[in-house]
């Protein structure tokens, strides 16, 4: 049996379209020794009940704090030797977790796979027609794609909660500066659900401002 892996799913209102159900089922289908930690950011739907119905550990925020804080809350509650962050709306491909796990070597602190964009089945035809997605798999997202030894966070600390997106940039920068190695494995581990472009465009400037803050801090080091 593999060492325990803590899969952390930060979520707010995950019941829609059974996204959360499918994410959890995708993880359970990996048939690995995992604990699934659902961090609820004050959902107003039955997210907590869904998580509990699958036997997940549930961590509740008293006030809404966002998904970066959710990652930190999950880390604090995690008992696993390994950590995997997973968005509540994505689906891990069968066998992917074992592959990420098996690729570890003594000097490796994280293994990384690619994600593949995928049209959510509940998108209307009209939405699909006006939503461009990446056709090829790509690196660069946490969701279901990066397995990390928990001890890495003992060295680099928790995520910076001052930013709400782009935390992976800071994480990778800290890994690099601490000499912690990430091994890339060229396969798709997770299907990243694309709902609509509206949301991303609306928030694009906020995201870039977050990125700029992280990059500025990175250059100062």
């Amino acid at each position: 049996m593999n060492d325990l892996i803590s899969v952390i799913i930060p979520v707010k209102n995950g019941s829609r379209g059974k996204y959360l159900n499918q994410a959890i089922e995708g993880i359970q289908a990996q048939n690995m020794n995992v604990e699934i930690i659902v961090v609820d950011d004050c959902s107003t739907d039955n997210t907590v009940e869904i998580a509990q119905s699958y036997g997940c550990k549930v961590v509740k925020h008293d006030t809404p704090k966002g998904q970066v804080s959710g990652k930190n809350s999950g880390l604090k509650a995690a008992c696993g030797k390994y950590i995997l962050f997973h968005d509540h709306d994505d689906i891990m491909i069968e066998g992917a977790l074992k592959k990420l796990y098996d690729e570890f070597e003594p000097d490796i602190m994280a293994t990384e796979a690619k994600v593949q964009d995928w049209y959510s089945p509940d998108l209307s035809d009209e939405e699909r027609a006006r939503t461009l997605i990446k056709q090829e798999p790509y690196w660069g997202l946490f969701t279901g794609a990066i397995l990390i030894k928990k001890e890495a966070f003992d060295k680099i600390g928790l995520f910076n909660e001052a930013v709400q997106t782009g935390e992976i940039i800071e994480w990778q920068s800290k890994m690099d500066s601490n000499g912690l190695k990430i091994k890339k494995i060229d396969f798709v581990s997770t299907m990243r659900r694309i709902h609509s472009t509206n949301f991303g465009k609306t928030h694009q400037n906020t995201e870039f401002k977050n990125y700029a803050a992280i990059l500025r801090a990175k250059l100062r080091k």
Partner: peptide, 16 residues
């Protein structure tokens, strides 16, 4: 990679 899983307070981390 454009991680767009930002949250809109009243909507949750899902599409509008």
């Amino acid at each position: 990679a454009d991680p767009i899983h930002e949250v809109k307070e009243e909507e949750g981390w899902s599409p509008e």
